[in-house]
């Protein structure tokens, strides 16, 4: 590990090079975004694309401002709330099931083909059934998000549990650890990174579930805005919805990433 207090010229140069490189990457990333926005705007104004269908940055900005006064935040809050609910449920139930399957290799073997099939099944196809069971409302939307993220979580977590360093488990067993202790002291902490990996995937999946759910049944939320915009042929509204959704998804992902950093630092990984 490099000492920070007595830095050589070469080390300083190295750090400066690294910093410059990172800045160049960031600059290019921003440049790409700005270029895209400008191209989009110009293409619309010069008639290369139909702004009525493809909208444009300035139109989206105006629509956003108009929506702000009509309670945009409420729509965002509804979608974020539903996503979080589905996400947390998926993570909890999924991890719980994975733990259960880890504890019983027999159950795990028996359940394997079902998990594989359920994993490849498009869960959105279950939409009508979910609506009939849970009613046309928030509950159906959350269930949809849960359905989409659950099996992936189970598979991810179970896979992680099984990939735990066998030598560490052997070490714990050499102290007489039972299965519960092996899980508590070795397998679970070992898989904190796996957990966060699956949480990151789940944020995206839950959003898919929520938006699909809102398409089917809802009177609020970003999915509702998008579907409504399509129905009344206000495609500005659709594009605005999609844009805000992108931002929301990015922010939620970043929050998980930040939480991961924080937990990992405390855990000393």
């Amino acid at each position: 590990m490099a000492k920070q207090d007595n830095v050589s010229v070469q080390q300083r140069q190295y750090l400066r090079r690294e910093k410059r490189y990172a800045r160049r990457v960031l600059l290019c990333q921003l440049g790409l975004l700005i270029a895209f926005l400008i191209l989009w705007e110009v293409a619309g104004r010069l008639g290369w694309i139909d702004p009525f269908i493809f909208s444009g940055p300035s139109r989206i900005w105006q629509t956003t401002r108009a929506l702000w006064n009509e309670g945009l935040l409420r729509h965002v809050a509804v979608t974020v709330g539903e996503t979080l609910a589905g996400f947390l449920l998926g993570a909890l139930v999924g991890t719980g099931l994975a733990v259960l399957l880890w504890f019983s290799p027999f159950l795990s073997r028996v359940g394997e083909p079902y998990l594989v099939v359920l994993n490849s099944l498009p869960k959105i196809a279950l939409g009508p059934v979910i609506i009939v069971i849970a009613g046309a409302g928030t509950r159906a939307i959350v269930l949809m998000a849960l359905a989409i993220s659950l099996i992936v979580t189970v598979l991810e977590m179970l896979g992680g549990f099984h990939r735990t360093d066998a030598e560490l488990i052997r070490m714990a067993r050499s102290f007489g650890a039972g299965r519960a202790q092996i899980f508590r002291y070795i397998v679970f902490p070992y898989n904190v990174p796996t957990l966060f990996g699956s949480l990151k995937i789940n944020i995206g999946l839950s959003l898919v579930g929520v938006i699909a759910g809102e398409f089917l049944v809802s009177r609020a939320g970003l999915g509702y805005l998008i579907v409504y915009g399509g129905q009344v042929f206000r495609l500005d509204l659709v594009m605005t919805g999609v844009t805000i959704l992108t931002v929301v998804a990015a922010l939620m992902y970043e929050s998980v990433a930040l939480l991961q950093k924080w937990v990992m630092r405390r855990y000393g990984h």
């Binding site: 030598e167 070992y190 000393g268």
Partner: peptide
């Protein structure tokens, strides 16, 4: 063979 210290 390995020290098997828990990294966390």
């Amino acid at each position: 063979q390995k020290d098997n210290l828990l990294e966390w």
